[in-house]
Write a protein that binds this DNA or RNA. Structure first.
Length: 585
RNA sequence: CGGGGCGUGGCGCAGUCUGGUAGCGCGCCUGCUUUGGGAGCAGGAUGCCGGGAGUUCAAAUCUCUCUGCCCCGACCA
């Protein structure tokens, strides 16, 4: 491809509304343009990268036995009413009506459609297992789209759905997808971790997220430095338990704590450590008032709390609700005499004596509270708090680290949630009707491109891993007006292309600096500079974008030397180009 | 949905308080010079100042309203 035939509108400055680096660079590199909030057009360069990711995803999905289909983006509301999600999915589901007033929605995911398809077609265990996937544009009406491709409303997703006859089969399907995902992210050249994720109300440990590690990630994960444990922070269980202290403390007593609203203020006012204060958090759980207790210096893990309650909706209480339930303004809630349906406490507080809690009275706290003695059996103790780096690994007790990650994939065992709601059944070998066991597996294809940039960039621009770059190599012809130089550049370009690398020839009549800057900005992994000086010496200059290292290759043995050097570049990424699978490992 | 901010040439911004001929940088076009890390000089084009209504002799500027976008929060298969 010649640059003069390509539309690549690069920018020196980043648009003001681009906050994260991937968003800025995608726009500056001329890969995407915003149409409206959370919705982007892919320009030629952006689409090339997107397609490259999708191609690798397809190869590995096919290899794992999944079959590609393509389902409609517009879906009938009736299907969603069947599973109840028409009601529960919320505003993220963009609903539309046709001219007859019938309900439709823009598909944010396809469990309903695929289950409808399969229930109509599959009747026998002999037809199972089956795994269907698609690569498709999804729409979710996010409350607040942001970060460019990282959290758009319209985005490209690969979603796969497996149907199995029994649990063992479903587990095998899950494992096959887990393996395929690992292969995909490895081939893309990304540094990632598969982490245990919260599986919500469905239960079981069958949920993993694939996280691309990047300092700018929105999620935090807990990773053990000693064993292979890795989990999403919201999932990570806190090991161990402090043994109950049986000593009776002093009797509780009310103290005035005017104007102290936060744990820190209370602790400072009473001259105690914040770990001697109990934080009481009030929530509205499906309409019921509930309270969560954690040590003052800890953070409540809302996912654990919600799972423990088993409720559908968990919302932090409003100031009005707090006033109504405690009789006091926000900041003075406490478990003593609290009139709520349930009080759950973090297990760390079991046997807790001599704590400071709110008095449910304005500007007042209570000292020397003993949860067992003063609040009683009403309190249940569970693992409710967010794990910290100082906690031991729940598996081996080792030291944890907590890197940031970007969720790019999720594998999930659904069980019979949808097959039951939609009556997707088959006849087993004994002629009995059974529900199909399902799994779903997503990869945010467009988000992968963004995550890749978050993980791989420098002050000059994107540092694309070769498999994701819009072009693997760019031949920069510094002097295209001189026929001889352009001719050489074309020769080099053709040789590189013939070695299998996707190549761009920058034949623009621009100053060299412009071409260098643009090449670094877009981040072609391999840059070949063909200029008058080099040609005179009989060499061209080859630059590895990742390391910045340049070497000179002679024109005489260019093809041979280039192939070897290209292999080195790939190896630097921990990759092979697919034809030389064993070279790097 | 609550709070805040911003809409001025393709991009980044000034001008708005205090009403009086719409500006700067980048980009774009033409010419000459230049040519290994975003060139220099000269000339040029491009604006319903987000839309509507009002106040005024006069509105980018003041008032009201609508709309779009961004940030913080709540929310999030």
């Amino acid at each position: 491809m010649r640059y003069t035939n390509l539309y690549v509108p690069t920018l020196k400055e980043a648009p003001a509304d681009a906050e994260v680096v991937s968003h800025q660079l995608l726009i500056r590199a001329g890969m995407i343009r915003k149409l409206t909030s959370g919705i982007y057009t892919y320009l030629p360069m952006g689409l090339r990268s997107l397609n490259k990711v999708a191609a690798i995803v397809r190869e590995e999905m096919n290899r794992a036995g999944a079959q590609e289909i393509s389902m409609p983006m517009v879906q009938p509301g009736d299907l969603w009413k069947e599973t109840g999600r028409w009601q529960f999915y919320g505003k993220e589901l963009l609903r539309i009506q046709d001219r007859h007033g019938r309900d439709y929605c823009l598909g944010p995911t396809h469990e309903e459609v695929v289950t409808d398809l399969v229930r109509g077609e599959v009747n026998s265990y002999k037809q199972l297992p089956i795994n269907l996937y698609q690569v498709q544009t999804k729409f979710r009406d996010e409350i607040r789209p942001r970060f460019g491709l990282m959290r758009g409303r319209e985005f490209v997703m690969k979603d796969a759905y497996s149907f199995d006859a029994d649990d063992a089969g479903a587990e095998a399907s899950y494992k096959a997808m887990y393996a395929a995902y690992s292969a995909i992210f490895e081939r893309l050249g990304l540094t990632f971790r598969a982490v245990e994720a919260d599986s919500g109300s469905i239960g079981g440990s069958f949920s993993h997220e694939f996280m691309v590690l990047a300092d700018t990630g929105e999620d935090t994960i807990a990773v053990c430095t000693a064993c292979d444990y890795a989990a999403n922070l919201e999932k990570a269980g806190v090991a161990g338990e402090i043994k109950p202290c049986m000593d009776q403390g002093p009797m509780m007593v009310e103290v005035a704590t005017p104007g102290t609203h936060t744990v820190e203020e209370v602790a400072e006012f009473l001259n105690v450590h914040s770990m001697q204060v109990i934080k009481t958090l009030l929530f509205d759980a499906d309409g019921e008032a509930v309270a969560a207790l954690v040590r003052g210096d800890r953070e409540l893990n809302e996912v654990k709390f919600k799972n423990a309650l088993g409720c559908a909706e968990l919302v932090m209480a409003s100031p009005e609700q707090v006033q109504e339930w405690t009789g006091a303004p926000v900041g003075f809630a406490g478990p003593v005499g609290l009139k709520v349906s349930r009080i759950l406490a973090d297990k760390e507080l079991r046997g807790a004596t001599d704590f400071v809690v709110g008095a449910n009275k304005a500007d007042t706290h209570v000292r020397h509270v003993d949860l067992g003695r003063d609040v009683g059996a009403k309190v249940q103790f569970l693992d409710l708090r967010v794990i910290t780096v100082d906690d031991p690994c729940p598996h081996c007790g080792g030291q944890l680290s907590m890197p940031k990650g970007i969720e790019v994939g999720h594998v999930f065992k659904l069980g019979t949630k949808y097959s039951e709601a939609m009556q997707a059944k088959f006849l087993d070998a004994n002629g009995r009707e059974q529900l199909m066991i399902m799994g779903c597996y997503g990869i945010g294809v467009s988000r992968v491109v963004a995550a890749c940039i978050e993980q791989n960039h420098d002050e000059n621009g994107i540092v694309f891993p070769p498999p994701v770059a819009p072009f693997e190599a760019a031949v920069l012809c510094l002097d295209p007006k001189k026929e001889e130089i352009l001719g050489k550049a074309e020769e080099i370009y053709n040789i590189i292309k013939s070695t299998g690398a996707d190549t761009l020839l920058d034949d623009r009549d621009e100053r060299p600096g412009v071409k260098f800057k643009d090449a670094d900005l877009v981040g072609y992994p391999i840059q070949i500079v063909v200029g008058g000086k080099g040609i005179l010496k009989g060499i061209v200059e080859c630059k590895d974008r990742r390391t910045g290292e340049k070497i000179e290759l002679g024109l005489d043995n260019f093809e041979r030397d280039f192939v070897a050097w290209r292999r080195d570049v790939w190896c630097g990424w921990g990759l092979t180009d697919g034809d030389n699978l064993d070279v790097c490992r």
